[in-house]
Design a protein around this nucleic acid. Structure first.
Lengths: 213, 213
DNA sequence: ACCTGAACACCGTTCAAGT
DNA sequence: ACCTGAACACCGTTCAAGT
């Protein structure tokens, strides 16, 4: 590892890379310093503490989310943003958990948020409706991502793989949970993500149409 | 603190209480042992490691979620479960982050899942549709809860409180983000949660009606 | 089996010191 | 200002030992 001149940006990028490769649990200030060939405390020249460093890493991640062009249909803009959030999350599976803890703050990280707000406003949504849609979308995207990355449905006792409960107990007291196993674990994450996304977009469009009447 | 006889259950309950009060970050095996008046290693008699203990705490939390009676309308059942998840999450705000990491596994923790599955099946949803609805609801509830508890929208730079970016930069390059501040931070969490919930329930009912035609 | 106390291999961060 | 090395106050967990 050739030692390059340190900057706030380079330190954050090294942290991003390290977390992507080794995971958030094993990430320490000492290992980061090692990876950039500096002493542990050199990191503290650029960030007051670990929390501030992780905030910066989250911004780098969020900056990768697509901010679609203005001229697209509003539903297409939202769809692209949502798919991009999911893709970025999967591309950086071990860093992705940070996005829940650290909202976008830098201009680059906010680019996709700006594009989304703009799409709603141009489609005629007022501030309150836009905020409401944004909240629902943020909840759905973050929740989907976390569940997918944590294997929430594959590790669910309702899925066959997990043998956490004995078959007898589960099929006797929780017959529906037992029955749902195959259906839950057999589904494709991307397809199901689209299903929920369409659901929300249709709902937004309907509410919009009603308000216009 | 009177020393009671230790059991797996009692240790998990003590951990639950401690995390609720002091938070997950500061929770250590040593402090837990102190709180039950035992040596640190006594905890390891009941749980192989910290991860296993946290799994158990998550089960205690999930067991508090309401499992509505059979005879209710399916939409009412789902609504009650979703509201209950949210309420339990807020009642145990500092422990709630665990539910993303640890899915329900014990019979008590799975009671509400069983009730939800049953409601869908009795309403005529097949396994695949039920799984699909469950996934969307799980993503939305978990995402909403995390966003609310982390102050995702209040801490958002689009909201007024956070002065993370100077006003000039934000209003020049991110005009919509700047404008959305008041609308985002002024909304009521509970009301917005209901909005998204209604959206999904309506979507499910529509899909169901179409499939029946 | 249940529980203890000491020890090991780590952490994040402070501090005094150097350039 | 930028960076270092030692030190402090912690961690989770292993281990040898006791009941």
């Amino acid at each position: 590892m050739v030692r390059e001149k340190l900057t706030e940006r380079r330190v954050a990028e090294a942290a991003f890379k390290l977390i992507d490769e080794k995971g958030l649990e094993g990430f320490t200030m000492r290992k980061l310093a090692d990876s950039i060939g500096a002493s542990t405390m050199a990191v503290y020249t650029y960030f007051p503490d670990k929390e501030a460093l992780l905030t910066a890493v989250a911004q780098l991640l969020l900056a990768e989310v697509e901010a679609p062009a203005e001229d697209l249909d509003w539903q297409e803009v939202i769809r692209r943003i949502m798919r991009s959030v999911r893709e970025v999350g999967h591309r950086h599976a071990r860093t992705a958990p940070l996005i829940t803890r650290f909202p976008p703050r830098t201009p680059d990280a906010l680019a996709f948020v700006e594009a989304g707000f703009r799409a709603f406003r141009r489609a005629g949504f007022d501030d309150l409706s836009t905020a409401r849609c944004y909240r629902a979308l943020a909840a759905y995207s973050i929740g989907s991502l976390e569940n997918e990355l944590n294997g929430y449905f594959t590790r669910h006792p309702a899925s066959e793989a997990s043998g956490s409960l004995d078959e007898i107990t589960i099929s006797k007291h929780l017959p529906h949970v037992a029955q749902m196993g195959p259906a839950l674990s057999g589904q494709d994450d991307a397809t199901e993500f689209e299903y929920g996304l369409d659901l929300m977009l249709t709902g937004f469009a309907d509410a919009m149409a009603k308000a216009r009447q």
